[in-house]
């Protein structure tokens, strides 16, 4: 069962004259966790909604869970769990009531057991009688995940599931997702967090509606051709500020007491750094981080837009 859970090509969607998703083709193998990254307004939510049939694409074809995704939307919905970016369960119902509703609407058998299991599994059992609206942000996210996975879907679409969630809860959240994926579930998850991107099996990066990078984190970093230097020493943050304007430097930003300076052309970058290779600063070449790469990707796309 090594088929593709998602295999769509040429996806397009416009709202009025705003072309929000442009020729997106995306394939996800069964059992993989794919991170979906991109700046605000780049079309992540829209793409997820297109995939689960909440929006009708202007064009595009392909299969989701082996079913024609344009014609079999109903069948796909039954096997897909979708967690929305904005909490969208019923705030005036308790956790238990919300889950019971989801279980019923999916026509599940042994509802009571499954609701209780899910409540236990996600550590929500003690709060089952609380109103969903009274939960804090992180607990709401857990409830939403519980609701999205209750019917044991084969595909899980998560839209920024950990926005505003504390680190411990986030880790638990991701452990949970990895457990589910180990059981054969395919996950497509949008996020703005780099550490979460690194927890994914592979990554898709979307910008202005185009999917411009796809692959594992390592391959994306390798393919970027980016060179990054790490600078340390007192006052380096002020240096970073000036470096950012220099030719050959794509980005220079502070990471605590250190700075990452990146560029695509090694010689140009070296030249820009030369004036700063002196005491008290120390420089060393490091592998670029995903964030460096994404910042570069954003810049590159912008340049292309100006030239085209």
């Amino acid at each position: 069962m090594n088929e593709r859970a998602i295999d769509v090509r040429g996806l397009n969607k416009s709202f009025g004259d705003r072309h929000v998703v442009r020729d997106v083709s995306i394939a996800v193998d069964t059992g993989r966790i794919t991170g979906f990254l991109g700046p605000n307004g780049s079309g992540k939510t829209t793409t997820l909604r297109l995939l689960c049939g909440l929006l009708t694409p202007d064009s595009g074809e392909g299969t989701v869970l082996g079913l024609d995704f344009r014609a079999r939307g109903d069948a796909i919905k039954r096997q897909t769990g979708y967690m929305t970016q904005k909490f969208s369960l019923y705030e005036d119902m308790t956790l238990e009531e919300n889950l019971a509703f989801v279980a019923r609407v999916h026509g599940l058998e042994q509802r009571r057991e499954r609701v209780e299991d899910t409540l236990h599994r996600l550590g929500l059992f003690d709060r089952r009688r609380q109103l969903a609206g009274a939960l804090s942000g992180g607990w709401k996210q857990r409830l939403a995940l519980a609701a999205a996975t209750l019917h044991e879907p084969r595909l899980l679409l998560l839209d920024e599931p950990t926005a505003g969630v504390d680190p411990k809860a986030r880790r638990e959240f991701w452990d949970e997702i990895h457990t589910l994926a180990a059981g054969g579930l395919t996950v497509l998850v949008s996020t703005h967090y780099m550490d979460e991107a690194e927890r994914c099996h592979d990554i898709g990066y979307i910008l202005y509606g185009r999917l411009i990078a796809r692959g594992t984190a390592d391959s994306i970093i390798r393919d970027s051709g980016l060179v990054t230097f790490l600078g340390e020493g007192p006052g380096i943050d002020r240096a970073a500020h000036l470096l950012a304007q220099a030719d050959g430097v794509l980005s220079a930003s502070a990471f605590g007491a250190a700075v990452h300076v990146s560029g695509v052309k090694r010689e140009a970058l070296e030249a820009a750094l030369a004036p700063w290779r002196k005491e008290p600063f120390r420089w060393s070449e490091v592998p670029p981080s995903l964030e460096d790469v994404f910042i570069q990707l954003m810049g590159r796309e912008r340049d292309e837009r100006y030239t085209s």
Partner: peptide
Amino acid sequence: RGTMETLLSTPA
């Protein structure tokens, strides 16, 4: 309230 999105993503 935004709950329409959940409702529509179910098979109902």
